[in-house]
Simulated assay, not measured.
Amino acid sequence: MKVTIFFGSKSDTDTMKKAAAVLREFGVDYSSYIISAHRAGELLAETVAAAEADGTEVIIAGAGLAAHLPGVIASMTVLPVIGVPLDGGKVGGLDALLSIVQMPKQIPVATVGLDNAANAAYLACEILAIKYPELKAKLKAFRAALKQEIAAEGGKGVSI
């Protein structure tokens, strides 16, 4: 099981590291690349093809501003692509969110919340869990632990 993470700028590294952390937590192999869809389209196409040939099953792509990267990648592969809109400009990431979530029909990109690379990785794990029972078991255990954590806090009065 393998995920490939793409993002368009070195400045996005700290946000996209959150996806890598989740994948490591669940024992999912991953690779990551900084490649701009605008400035290095041929390199991006070569890298997507190589990732697919190397066993990648899900792609996470983070992008800010016009946020073309997830859609461009989706046009190059039939693998699931999860877009992470990144806050990269004057409108607080709204431009990236709308660019990714409004992909034209027939070549979809799943979209998570603004700067939420961790959720992209959780979604990638859920997609992979369809095929890998051991990952499905880890996700169920993770969810059970979340439930217990919340239950332990629940029912207590809080001062607000």
Rank of each mutant, 00 (worst) to 15 (best):
P108E: 05
L135I: 11
A67E: 10
A145R: 14
V158L: 12
A129C: 11
D29E: 15
E52W: 00
R143K: 15
N119L: 10
G71R: 11
A37H: 08
G64N: 04
G88N: 03
L146A: 15
T111M: 02
K140Q: 11
L44R: 06
V72M: 07
R39C: 00
R39S: 04
S9A: 14
G64K: 01
G113C: 00
L43F: 02
V22I: 14
G71W: 14
E42Y: 06
K131Y: 13
L98E: 05
C125S: 08
C125L: 09
H38N: 03
T77K: 00
K90S: 12
D95R: 03
K18S: 13
G64P: 04
F6T: 08
K2D: 03
K10W: 09
G113V: 04
L97H: 06
A152W: 10
A61N: 12
Y132M: 07
V78A: 12
D87C: 01
V84W: 03
A51D: 14
M103I: 02
Y132S: 11
N116V: 03
V109M: 07
A151R: 10
L65W: 04
I34G: 01
E126K: 13
P70L: 04
G41S: 05
L44M: 07
A51R: 07
A50L: 10
T56M: 02
G157Q: 06
V22K: 07
V158D: 12
T47V: 00
K105Y: 13
E42N: 05
P80A: 07
L98A: 04
Y33E: 09
K90F: 09
K136H: 15
L97K: 03
G55H: 09
S9D: 10
G62V: 09
Q106P: 04
L114Y: 09
A49N: 05
A110W: 07
E46F: 02
G88K: 00
A151V: 06
G157V: 07
G92H: 06
R24K: 15
A67D: 11
G92Q: 08
M16E: 06
L44K: 03
T4D: 00
A144Q: 13
A21L: 03
G154Q: 14
P104K: 13
E46G: 07
L79F: 05
I127T: 01
G55N: 02
I34V: 09
E134P: 12
Y122W: 14
Q148H: 14
K18F: 02
S99K: 10
T15Q: 06
E52Y: 01
M1W: 02
I130L: 11
A20T: 04
